[in-house]
Amino acid sequence: MNSQFFLSLISGIFIGGVAGYLGSLMLTKRMALVGDALGHVALPGMGLALLFGFNVSIGAFLFLLLGIFLIWLFEIKTSLPMEALVGIVFVASLAIGFLIVPEPELLEALLGDISKVSFEMAITSVIFSLLIFFVIKRIYPKMILTNISEDLAKSEGIKVKKENFIYLLSIAAMVALGVKIVGSLLVGALVIIPAATARNLSKNLKGYSLGSLVLGILSCLFGSLLFKITHLPAGPLIILTSTLLFLISLIFKR
């Protein structure tokens, strides 16, 4: 195993794991497609990063912050559902991305490229994945209670707005990491599929959240190995591995 592949594998495993874990929370909040949408919001930032040669995740994160800010702003101004506002921001970002990013960079931004992970990138991926993991772990029970009932959570003294804000920031950070692995088109799958699979297999919350994490790791692990063998693009292979695990879970569904 060469060291380049090892770096890719390590980044993939950590990012895949935390994406799955966070995804388990997003699925209970009926926000499964938000990861998908935000992946597209990140596109212009990624393109600019590739053009000017800085870290893709930083470019993605900046545009994600901007996107989330706009969604939040629109939500105050209108009574339209969150879904519609996310939709508007994400297609607009996509359009901007297509206009400003030249074609070769665009393809890389859309599909990701784990073969280019540098040592520094791998280290930052691991550190940020762990950081996001611990933040999510801390807010997890509060978010679950909030998802069950905001009133109940408030009556228990949970500061719903604050927790939501931390949660959204975590999603943005996670998407910024994830786009590097599977690209902006497929990052949503990184959060949805492991959680969906885990839900089929688990009968309690612990099994569900841990299961999502493990399935996220397994998908990235096997997907990357397949990439090593076949030399096909890694992103789609990771997602298809994840999908295969989901199909298998249908057989064992509780």
Binding site: R30, N147, I148, N204, Y208
Partner: peptide
């Protein structure tokens, strides 16, 4: 609590 049934969770 209409959403609670969407969450795999034991009573405990």
């Amino acid at each position: 609590l209409p959403f609670i049934k969407d969450i795999p969770m034991s009573v405990e």
